[in-house]
Amino acid sequence: MERYLRDRRESGAKLLVAYITGGYEGWEAAVESAAAAGADAIEIGIPFSDPVMDGPIIQKASQEALEAGATPASVLAVVPRLDTGVPHAVMTYYNLAHHPGHERFAATLAKSAIDAAILPDLPLVESGPWREAASRAGVETIMLAAPTTPDERLPELCEASRGFVYAVGLLGVTGERATLASTATEIAKRCKEVTDKPVLTGVGIGSPEQAVEASTVADGVIIGSAVVRRLLDGDGANGVGDLIASYRAALDAG
């Protein structure tokens, strides 16, 4: 994923990653539609029973997906068949990697056309063993940098991160906000100062205008709740495609 995103960045593009909750009704078509509409990578959520980093929208989608019978295996089995042409990351919680064991989970990801993993409840200090196992399996681990992350830790965190660096845009959980938090550009700037890896800002970006604003500093953005809300509202894959296209157009226009 990192090489792909670096190439895209070098071609002058601002990067756009779309998050979609795996297992939620219609998610497969939504993934393909987001990719076709210009997403540079897709983040696929594997629903977990206790998603502490997620706000109401993604919580709801996760819970409904679980109730519909979604499991890590049922979500991952579908990914190789999806026609996207872009890299895939999974976003899930650490217990789903811990339970089967690091090696086994990493191997499952690798053979399921997953290039990278995001585990928001696995901070840098606890992440060593997982990152090693993932790396051996050829899976990149994307680390989150938070507004509260101290300057002393930021270089180490960015160094450890593979794929891209996920700059958490605000103090809080996932979800759209009316305005872009000032922390969004601050944390991206701090990351950019210590790494040349792609830095993408996520959490709290709810409009193409905010995406453009965040991308004045960051290399791009991750759009999650805004996408999933389209699915919850019944707008389906077309709704997701239209939404991603609007972000793509805004980012391309700068």
Binding site: V52, P120, P123, V125, L144, T148, T149, L157, L171
Partner: peptide, 8 residues
């Protein structure tokens, strides 16, 4: 200490 980076 398995918490989001924000809380570390």
């Amino acid at each position: 200490r398995f918490v989001p980076e924000t809380l570390v």
